[in-house]
Write a protein that binds this DNA or RNA. Sequence first.
DNA 1: ATTAAATAGGATAATTTTGTCCGATTTGTA
DNA 2: TACAAATCGGACAAAATTATCCTATTTAAT
Lengths: 144, 144
Amino acid sequence: MFSKACEYGIRASTYIALKSLEGTRVSLKEIADKIDSPVAFTAKILQQLSKKQIIESVKGSLGGFQISQSNISQIKLAQIVYAIDGNNVYEGCGLGLKRCNSNEPCPVHDKFIQIRADLKEMLESTSLYDMTMGLEEGLTHLKR
Amino acid sequence: MFSKACEYGIRASTYIALKSLEGTRVSLKEIADKIDSPVAFTAKILQQLSKKQIIESVKGSLGGFQISQSNISQIKLAQIVYAIDGNNVYEGCGLGLKRCNSNEPCPVHDKFIQIRADLKEMLESTSLYDMTMGLEEGLTHLKR
DNA sequence: ATTAAATAGGATAATTTTGTCCGATTTGTA
DNA sequence: TACAAATCGGACAAAATTATCCTATTTAAT
């Protein structure tokens, strides 16, 4: 569904959001540890997300990553997926055809349309805040 | 969503089904040409599908690939996807967690469950015959 | 100033996926 | 039997993705 990079990106953003809600900035090391991801690779992904202004990075000692309170509720999963994987998930034919649309459909075009739409709707309606909801109470987790 | 190999596999199987309905066996070359896929790579995929008895291969001169009439209507997309990509599409956490289930869910577990279920339902209910329906009349295509 | 802790970013490596090449084998036909 | 047309299968190559390493830079604290 998503690339590894994207999966790490969503998990990392969610963890950063969780800690930002508590008012603390988190380091790359802590993030990678808490979401069980390779440190250096995670760093690259966080750089991407930082450039796209989905998360904020603070350099230097006491630096780390954080997300503003307003962004925690406004940033949707769709934006993270788009920032890392582009629009392949939403567009892009299920059978890999470049030219596939309602006028010139592949045999499963119409059936995929609906599933993609549901996925899109889900990603566009789920905020980072929503993602953190179950985490505090241990109802959900981000590791392994 | 699916690997390239799987996309080629579905397109190839659909084309073979189409021609088998007309009573003709097709060669690797023709298949690759008609679905616009790399010849040698397609050969590997057809081998897999042949071993899983989704398609039949006939060696030697006048050889090629075909699908029995009964299989054209009985083989579902789900079987092709499973033969090539395994069960990652159906199972496998949306965020890449190994341990993610209803007892220990990731933050999007429940939301993914529904989308995956719809995808599964679609793949399990669409036969190769269904795939060929629009092809003859040119309503759908498999190329590019 | 110096040091320590942190991110930034370029280069490189490992792995997986995708794709190619070529000889071996099978089979129909002359 | 010889040949041609086809798949089979192993080895290899290329490309994309995932992951690591190392140096530079930034910043806080001493």
